[in-house]
């Protein structure tokens, strides 16, 4: 399968920080959409989008959850745009040990934006009132989807758990769960 070319849709969310009013509706709806059952609860701390927000300095950066990082990075960026200095990590999408962003509040499991799979339009885009978030789609030739992706996702989740609790504990837990079934 690997290496085969295929048409696929690339989804880009265009973020306009100038239009963000800091309402956090995007955080709210993302967490509600991913609740089990859907919309049964909400909690912005579970959202896969975060508003890095500092009103008195006029900083508003919507950031999407990206990849999981085992360790925090050694080299960081600090941007100054239009005379406003942004803190370290302001634009980073990683779920990383240096901060609380993009982790389940209880388990610490990493969160990752899935573009609201199955919905017509990402929910955060739909709920963003002033077009700070806009969806763009285009067709592109690309590598075919790898069936191993799902496997990889599971592994990333497990790895994160292992980082937090140690591999032995995870093994024990898996063994216990399998016994129950």
């Amino acid at each position: 399968m690997k290496g085969k070319k295929e048409k696929k849709t690339v989804k880009t969310i265009k973020i306009n920080v100038d239009k963000c009013n800091g309402c956090r509706a995007c955080e709210m709806i993302c967490s509600a959409f991913h609740a089990e059952p859907k919309y049964s609860s909400n909690n912005p701390a579970r959202s896969r989008i975060r508003i890095i927000r500092e009103p008195l300095r006029d900083l508003y950066v919507p950031v999407y959850a990206g990849e999981y990082a085992v360790a925090e990075c050694a080299g960081r960026d600090k941007y100054t745009i239009d005379g406003k200095e942004y803190d370290e990590c302001s634009f980073c999408r990683a779920s990383c040990p240096s901060r609380d962003e993009f982790k389940e509040p209880d388990s610490g499991l990493p969160l990752k934006c899935d573009m609201c799979e199955g919905e017509e339009e990402p929910l955060c885009v739909k709920w963003c009132p002033h077009d700070a978030l806009i969806l763009e789609q285009r067709e592109e030739e690309g590598e075919a989807l790898d069936p191993q992706d799902e496997q990889e996702d599971i592994e990333i989740g497990l790895e994160a758990l292992a980082d937090k609790y140690g591999l032995e504990k995870i093994k024990d837990a898996v063994a216990r769960i399998s016994k129950k079934d």
């Binding site: 800091g22 309402c23 956090r24 009103p55 006029d58």
Partner: peptide
């Protein structure tokens, strides 16, 4: 006025910095 801002989960931007 730097920016019009909203309360939690509201589109109305009634406030300002």
């Amino acid at each position: 006025r730097t920016r019009l801002i909203s309360c939690y989960n509201c589109p109305m931007t009634c406030g300002a910095t």
